[in-house]
Deep mutational scan, measured.
Amino acid sequence: RELEAFAERFKQRRIKLGVTQADVGAALANLKIPGVGSLSQSTICRFESLTLSHNNMIALKPVLQAWLEEAE
């Protein structure tokens, strides 16, 4: 499924970029996305391991996609 594929791609790109899960969480606050502050390292970890609820995964995907586009 698309969500699982994105989570895997996100993790691979993050590692290639040399960015930690905690760095991603902190950097999200800098994107100034309305309603989104920083996220914890454990939230990023749970996203990558697909252990968040489906609704949370869907909500976080565009936020993490925005970070990925900014980071690349």
Rank of each mutant, 00 (worst) to 15 (best):
L50S: 14
G18L: 01
K61Y: 12
A5C: 03
A22I: 03
A71Q: 07
A22P: 03
W67M: 03
V19A: 07
L31Q: 07
G35P: 05
A7T: 06
A27G: 07
I58N: 12
E69H: 05
L60T: 05
A29V: 07
V36L: 13
A22S: 11
L39R: 02
L64G: 01
L31N: 02
E70Y: 06
A27C: 06
A66K: 15
A27D: 03
G18T: 00
I33K: 04
P62M: 03
V24E: 00
E2P: 04
E72D: 10
K32Y: 09
V24Q: 01
W67S: 02
S38Q: 14
L39G: 00
Q21R: 05
R13I: 14
I15M: 14
G18Q: 07
R9D: 15
I15W: 03
S40P: 08
R1N: 08
V36Y: 09
A22K: 06
L50P: 00
V63H: 14
E4G: 07
R13P: 00
H54Y: 12
R46K: 14
L39W: 02
N30I: 04
Q21D: 06
E72L: 04
Q12K: 10
T51E: 09
V63F: 08
K32A: 11
L3Q: 07
P34M: 09
F6D: 05
S40L: 03
A26H: 12
T20E: 08
T51G: 08
K16Q: 13
R13M: 10
L52T: 03
E8R: 12
A22F: 08
E72P: 03
E4K: 09
G18K: 05
R1G: 13
I33L: 15
G35L: 04
L68P: 00
R13H: 15
R14W: 00
E8I: 13
E4Y: 09
A71T: 11
E69N: 11
Q12E: 15
V24F: 01
S38I: 13
I58S: 12
G25D: 04
A26Q: 12
L64K: 02
E70M: 06
V63M: 11
E70I: 04
N56F: 02
E2K: 09
N30F: 06
E8M: 13
P62L: 03
P62K: 08
R14L: 01
M57V: 06
R13S: 15
V63A: 09
A5R: 09
R1T: 09
T51H: 07
E70N: 15
D23K: 09
E69W: 06
R46Q: 13
S38V: 15
M57G: 02
L31A: 15
P34I: 04
L50D: 09
R9F: 05
S49V: 01
A66L: 12
L17S: 01
S38P: 14
L64V: 04
L31K: 14
E69G: 07
I33T: 07
I15H: 04
A22R: 10
L64W: 01
L28S: 02
E8K: 15
F47E: 00
F6E: 01
Q65D: 11
Q12V: 09
V19F: 14
I58L: 15
P34V: 06
Q65L: 03
P62Y: 04
F6G: 00
E8H: 07
A71E: 10
E69M: 12
S40H: 13
F47N: 00
Q65G: 14
L28C: 03
R1C: 06
K16S: 13
G18V: 00
L50R: 14
S53T: 07
F47I: 01
F47R: 01
R46I: 01
Q21F: 04
K11M: 09
V24S: 01
K16N: 10
Q12N: 15
V63G: 03
A22H: 10
I58F: 15
G35H: 12
P62F: 03
V63L: 06
T43W: 04
G18C: 02
A22Q: 07
L3I: 15
A71S: 10
N56S: 15
I58Q: 11
L3T: 10
F47Y: 06
A71M: 10
K16H: 11
S42K: 14
V36I: 15
F47K: 01
L28V: 09
L28M: 10
E72G: 06
E70C: 06
C45M: 12
T20S: 10
C45H: 14
E8Y: 06
L28N: 02
C45P: 06
A26R: 13
N56G: 12
I15Y: 05
P62V: 04
V24W: 02
Q12W: 05
E69P: 02
E4S: 07
L68G: 02
G37Q: 13
K61H: 10
R46C: 04
A27T: 15
L64F: 04
D23N: 10
D23T: 05
E2Y: 02
A66P: 02
I33M: 05
F47A: 01
G25S: 09
A7R: 02
P62R: 04
R46A: 14
Q65H: 11
E48K: 06
C45W: 06
E2N: 07
L50T: 10
F6S: 05
S40E: 10
G35Q: 11
F10L: 02
V36T: 05
I15F: 05
F10G: 00
Q21S: 05
Q12P: 00
T20A: 07
P34Y: 04
L28E: 00
T20M: 05
Q65R: 06
I58M: 15
F6Q: 01
N30V: 08
T51M: 15
S42I: 04
T43R: 02
Q12H: 05
A71L: 07
E4R: 14
N56T: 02
E70V: 05
T51V: 10
A7K: 04
G25V: 14
A27Y: 11
A7L: 02
I15V: 10
A59S: 03
L68Q: 03
P62Q: 04
L17E: 01
V36D: 01
V36F: 12
L3K: 03
I58K: 11
F10R: 02
I33Y: 10
L28Y: 03
R46E: 14
S42T: 10
L17H: 01
K11E: 00
K32S: 12
K61N: 02
N30W: 13
V19K: 15
N30E: 11
E8D: 12
Q21W: 05
S49M: 09
A26N: 12
G37V: 12
E72N: 07
A27S: 07
G35F: 06
N55L: 15
P62G: 06
I33P: 09
S40M: 05
L64M: 08
L31S: 10
P62C: 02
K61P: 00
N30T: 13
R14G: 00
Q12G: 04
V24C: 07
N30D: 08
N30Q: 13
A26I: 09
R46V: 00
S53R: 06
N55S: 11
E8L: 13
L28G: 01
S38R: 12
E72Q: 06
N56K: 10
C45Q: 13
S49R: 09
A26D: 13
P34S: 09
H54K: 14
E8P: 01
S40D: 14
G37H: 13
F6A: 03
E72R: 03
I15T: 14
E72C: 08
T51F: 02
K11N: 01
I44K: 15
R46D: 15
A7G: 02
A27F: 05
I15P: 00
E8C: 07
F6C: 01
S49F: 03
N30P: 06
A29N: 12
T51C: 09
R14V: 01
R13Q: 11
A27N: 09
W67H: 01
W67R: 05
A7M: 01
L31H: 01
S38H: 13
L17Q: 00
M57S: 08
Q21V: 13
S49A: 14
A7S: 07
V24R: 01
G18F: 01
S49T: 14
Q41S: 15
L64N: 01
L64C: 01
A66Q: 14
